[in-house]
């Protein structure tokens, strides 16, 4: 085997090893969940940081996604005289795909990176070791609350994103382009199914995305080399790995849930 082949082989082996380690880390996290119940306040604090503090970016992005989606759909559907269906199409697109996926990507960029950087710096400054030596389990105190906060926050953020996107679509479609308000809402309520589109589309997907992004963020933080360069790389890896995982998982979930 030539040198390039060996390098590619090593890269694949390392990637598989990382996935395996991440799986083991997930088991450790889940095993620590009962122990982390005594740190409920820490979980609530993290919920504030990863959830409430992400609201602004989620709301603004949701609004603009809904607005631009309505604009595009209106122009395409007007060719076929179907502009009255644009509200419904906006809703279905947002509930089934754009809402959970874009929220997860934004969540990875905003909250995932901050979780990785924070834990990485805690490692670099020996704070994690200090906890271990004070007989405080860092998995239960640091990792699990952040993981749980991410899992809880994601579906809530996805709901906010969807609501803002529908509002943006209404703003452009009804207030600006002149679609009838009654038609906009009635088509939407007639076609949107609570189980298929809201429960499976928004809630279930975003719950899975929240778990994956939080797991990757916490895992990268805990396994980063305790150096400034290591933290920088880990933060980048969180965004890259989360983005790929979100899109790949979205395909798998869509295929099973449709």
């Amino acid at each position: 085997m030539n040198a390039r082949g060996r390098q590619e082989g090593n890269a694949v082996t390392q990637a598989l090893a990382q996935i395996g380690l991440c799986g083991l880390f997930l088991l450790t996290l889940l095993a620590a969940v009962p122990r982390s119940f005594r740190y409920v306040r820490e979980t609530i604090r993290q919920l504030w940081f990863v959830g409430a503090m992400s609201l602004t970016i989620i709301m603004v992005c949701g609004l603009f996604v809904g607005m631009v989606l309505m604009l595009q759909l209106y122009h395409v559907l007007s060719i076929f005289g179907g502009t009255s269906a644009s509200g419904m199409v906006v809703a279905l697109s947002v509930y089934r795909e754009l809402g959970p996926v874009i929220t997860a990507l934004l969540f990875a960029g905003r909250a995932g990176t901050s979780i990785t950087a924070e834990i990485g710096l805690m490692r670099a400054t020996d704070q994690i070791d200090a906890m271990e030596l004070m007989a405080v389990d860092p998995i239960a105190y640091v990792a699990t609350p952040r993981f749980l906060a991410g899992v809880i926050a994601m579906p809530l953020l996805a709901c906010v994103f969807c609501a803002m996107a529908i509002f943006g679509g209404h703003l452009v479609g009804v207030s600006w382009l002149g679609i009838d308000n009654g038609t906009f809402w009635s088509n939407m309520t007639a076609e949107v199914d609570v189980h298929t589109d809201i429960v499976n589309g928004v809630l279930f997907k975003s719950l899975a995305f929240g778990a994956v992004v939080s797991l990757i963020a916490v895992f990268q933080g805990f396994t980063t080399p305790p150096t400034s360069e290591g933290v920088a790389y880990a933060t980048t890896r969180t965004v890259v790995a989360s983005s790929i995982a979100i899109l790949a998982l979205d395909f798998v979930l869509t295929a099973f849930l449709m």
């Binding site: 805690m122 400054t125 070791d129």
Partner: peptide, 8 residues
């Protein structure tokens, strides 16, 4: 610890 390791 050498660098104190206070919780920031």
């Amino acid at each position: 610890f050498q660098n104190s390791a206070l919780l920031t």
